[in-house]
């Protein structure tokens, strides 16, 4: 397909909203906060993304999905660039993204807890609300969960286990 109109940055941002995180499909990559820049120079489109976790297997899939989405619009001169610094943080996740996560049953990251708590051992965990019953009476089951970005919690009131999109 040949693009009927030349790419504009605004159009590219709209299309990126339709690319989802393969591991948490309710989130778009914009909700996730990993798109750092869109550059359009004539026909050439460059999208710069920041990896969430170093070993996250979704990053390769996301780069491919970006290419496919833009190609489907006829934008063929594409580059997806990786940028390591500044390192991605959950503080970049959008308010819409946080609401979608909660509705999906995953507790969103608690703001301002992203860095510097490495050496607090035991018992200083952030209070995470249960996404199902909103109780704050929850406990950390495992700092490491089903994917690199999640920790496993359990609600002490409704007893449901749930994922927490942990701060980073």
């Amino acid at each position: 397909m040949v693009a009927t109109t030349a790419p504009t940055e605004a159009r590219i941002w709209e299309l990126l909203e339709e690319v989802s995180d393969p591991e948490v499909p309710v989130l778009s990559i914009l909700d996730l906060g990993i798109v750092r820049a869109v550059r359009v120079e004539g026909e050439q489109v460059t999208v710069t993304i920041t990896p969430t976790y170093s070993g996250c297997p979704a990053m390769g899939a996301i780069a491919t999905d970006i290419r496919l989405r833009l190609l489907a619009e006829g934008y063929a001169k594409l580059a997806v660039a990786n940028q390591l610094s500044p390192a991605w943080t959950t503080d970049w996740m959008s308010a819409a993204g946080r609401a979608k996560l909660t509705a999906y049953g995953i507790a969103p990251p608690v703001d301002g807890t992203a860095t510097g708590h490495a050496l607090h051992l035991f018992g200083k965990e952030t209070t995470v609300r249960c996404p199902l019953c909103q109780s704050a009476n929850t406990k950390l089951v495992n700092q490491f969960g089903s994917t690199a970005c999640k920790a496993l919690y359990q609600c002490q009131d409704c007893r449901e286990p749930f994922d927490y999109f942990k701060c980073h």
Partner: peptide, 25 residues
């Protein structure tokens, strides 16, 4: 560039150190 790799990885290493420290205890 090494600084950028370290900036990314140190966040993960912090979780690792917390995990192994708690298990030593």
């Amino acid at each position: 560039h090494l600084a950028a790799i370290a900036e990314k990885s140190v966040k993960e290493a912090a979780y690792h150190l917390k995990w192994s420290s708690e298990w030593v205890i």
